[in-house]
Structure formats: C-alpha cells, structure tokens
Amino acid sequence: MSRLLGLFRRRPPTASLAKERLRIIVAQERNNRGGPDYLPLLRGELLEVVRKYVQIDIDQIEINLERADGHEILELSVSLPQKHAA
C-alpha cells in the first residue's frame, strides 16, 4: 500500500538547491585556481591557530590570491563570530 502511495508522491524539487550549491563551490574553487597548492593547507593551519582563541568554522576563513602585474597579493580574511568576548 505504501508503495502504491509512493507512486503518487512527488519528489521534492531539488534542482535549485543543486544550482545554488554549485554556484558557491565553483566560485570558490575558481578563486583558488592556479594558486599555489599550499593554500588549502595554509587555510587549515590558520583555522587551528585562530581556534586557540576563537571558535570559528573553516568557511569563515577566506583566502584569495590576486595577481596584479608583476606581483601577487595574498588576501586573508577571517570573519569572527558576532558576539564580543569582552
């Protein structure tokens, strides 16, 4: 009986979810593309250091490598939680 009912049940529309997740991860991976291989490692170690003081998630650390003519800029951004420790 439940199988029969299952035939009529619609699957939830998840395509938009897929698209949104892809949009984010692809943008992130494109950003790191061509950068040195140590960037993900650096990100991980940075996470450990920051976590000694403040609890944050890995996605709160952003690493960008920008190329201008002749030099590269490594941009690190760590967003801390809203709550003030003091």
Partner: peptide, 17 residues
C-alpha cells in the same frame, strides 16, 4: 525532471560553467 524541478536545466548548467 527538469520541468518538475528535480534536475538542473541546460541554462542552469550553462550559467554555472
């Protein structure tokens, strides 16, 4: 399945890539 919203459309994939 695209019509039902279960699968990404051509335009979705094209837009992402």
């Amino acid at each position: 399945r695209v019509t039902l919203g279960e699968m990404m459309s051509v335009n979705d994939v094209k837009e992402i890539l």
